[in-house]
Design a protein around this nucleic acid. Structure first.
Lengths: 118, 118
DNA sequence: ACATTGTGCAACCTAAAGGTTGCAGTTTCT
DNA sequence: AGAAACTGCAACCTTTAGGTTGCACAATGT
């Protein structure tokens, strides 16, 4: 088995909390921005990061586990790239909750404006 | 000074990573869903949660610090409520990065389909 | 073959996150 | 005044997150 390049994004739809947790780190957001511009290896990313390659590797694993990025082997390098579908879960969750809150807050506003008051 | 109800959401626009980190917990997502339905006190929320009131209080503080909820005193209770604007930061960030990724991935597709290949 | 460059693994460290318990302070109700 | 119901603070515990170092393994270039 390959292992490295498989057991990651294939895990179906990840938990919203897990994805948010993966996004909840300054360095990982930086990595996502970087990979958004062009695919890169851990070593290459570490060159621009304020931490060691190993730290970057750990961050990449976290991002990979929740499906935000994918890895492919290219010769002796492992190149990571962004997965657009990975944004599905967090975007969906935020959409849903924004809609729910909006409905409720709207109802409050209407209840305050509509009925008699003075 | 009041302290309790002030030094929280007034901190301007919070860091995206911090907001995501605040969202990166199963219990906190549950709390946000609950508060989305109706405002509630920590004690009330704890009744529905699998953890103690104190744990819920800590979660509420985290959510408050990043501006996702707000607290107001009501008699002897402290009632927490949702803040729609609190979703601004994460939504914005996801929008931005999705757009950036989309542009780049689109360019890759076109480069693969456009030029000669046979 | 051999040096180079990049990845992978493991041990280890420190700080922070999440949670608990216990107790003191406040507001409300009777 | 006294009981009841909440909130607030502090100490403490355990696990995890983020990071580092060191070394072994694999692919490439000369």
């Amino acid at each position: 088995m390959t292992g490295l390049l498989e057991a990651s994004a294939a895990s179906g739809t990840p938990d919203a909390a897990e994805v948010f947790a993966a996004l909840g780190d300054k360095h990982r957001l930086g990595i996502l921005r970087g990979l958004g511009m062009r695919p890169a290896s851990a070593t290459a990313l570490a060159a621009d990061a304020p931490v060691t390659r190993q730290a970057v590797v750990k961050h990449l694993r976290v991002l990979e586990r929740v499906g935000l990025i994918a890895a492919r082997r290219e010769g002796r390098e492992v190149v990571y790239d962004v997965r657009l579908e990975g944004l599905q879960t967090p975007v969906q969750w935020l959409d849903d909750i924004a809609a729910a809150w909006d409905r409720r807050l709207d109802a409050v506003k209407q209840a305050a404006e509509g009925p008699s008051e003075g």
